[in-house]
Design a protein around this nucleic acid. Structure first.
Length: 255
DNA sequence: ATGCCGTGATAGTCACGA
């Protein structure tokens, strides 16, 4: 069972690449982020034609997450609990093929310091609380998405780069570790413990040809899911396509 | 120190990203 997470950076701009990738990789479940379109404008008919059911939590212009699945999915949670005033579409959770899956687009948080960084840390605290409840169910759970956190020095091409960025702030890293310490397994990290695996390369400054990337797209597995972990990685070649997203899909295969 | 590039909303450039 192949579960992937892919920040597509805009549905309209990326649909041809998304369809190519689905045809090539054939994920059973694909968690998408930054769909950047309203729910009603997401191309559900085109994707149904490509063999996928869609759950969509969209928003005009920014953010937006979706869960694509070969088998029908049952929506469990739309939006991250814990703040009724939060109108940003960054969380969607569903049951698919016996697994609880979430598509997560964690706030970027720049600039630091500032209200956006405060929002990021508050959002991570809400996620930590919600994730504790998920662990308590004992279900196989996969929290997949763009976490906008670079967890370790070897998760980036140059450990001194991004030091002042929200993605590498000690508070961001600490919040990510707190989440892990609840009992989650970072699937890609567990299969590549020495690091050196990137999931994002900036469009600017020749980051892709220079391989100046870092890892911010993660799949966190509950114990019941980690027991079934067979393999995990990043589909790096996807980033090399024409008109590619700046992210590549990260994935996990469960037995 | 800032922009680089890219996307979307909008009809100017601007917000936002990472």
């Amino acid at each position: 069972m192949l579960i992937a997470t892919f920040n597509i950076n805009g549905t309209n701009a990326r649909l041809p690449r998304l369809l190519e990738w689905l045809e090539e990789a054939k994920p059973d479940i694909a968690c998408l982020q930054e769909i950047k379109t309203m729910t009603e404008n997401f191309p559900v008919d085109v994707l149904r034609g490509a063999g996928y059911h869609c759950l969509v939590h969209g928003q005009k212009g920014f953010n937006g997450v979706a869960i694509l699945s070969r088998e029908p999915a049952t929506e469990v949670q739309r939006g991250l609990p814990g703040d009724d005033s939060d109108e940003q579409s960054r969380y969607l959770e569903a049951d698919v093929m016996g697994v609880r899956v979430a598509s997560i687009y964690l706030p970027n948080g720049n600039p630091v310091p500032g209200p956006k960084f405060d929002y990021k840390l508050a959002w991570m605290e809400r996620l930590r609380r919600h994730a504790a409840g998920l662990l308590a169910t004992g279900l196989p759970v996969v929290l997949a998405g763009d976490y906008n956190v670079i967890p370790n020095d070897d998760d980036i091409w140059d450990a001194s780069a991004m030091r002042d960025d929200a993605l590498r702030q000690p508070e961001s890293v600490a919040a990510y570790r707190q989440l892990l310490w609840q009992g989650w397994t970072d699937a890609v990290r567990s299969l590549h413990p020495l690091g050196g695996v990137w999931s994002f390369w900036d469009y600017q400054a020749g980051a892709w040809p220079r391989d100046h990337g870092f890892r911010i797209d993660h799949l966190l597995l509950s114990p019941a899911a980690a027991d079934r972990l067979a393999d995990a990685g990043v589909m790096k070649h996807v980033r090399g396509a024409e008109k590619a997203s700046d992210h590549a899909p990260a994935w996990v295969r469960l037995r």
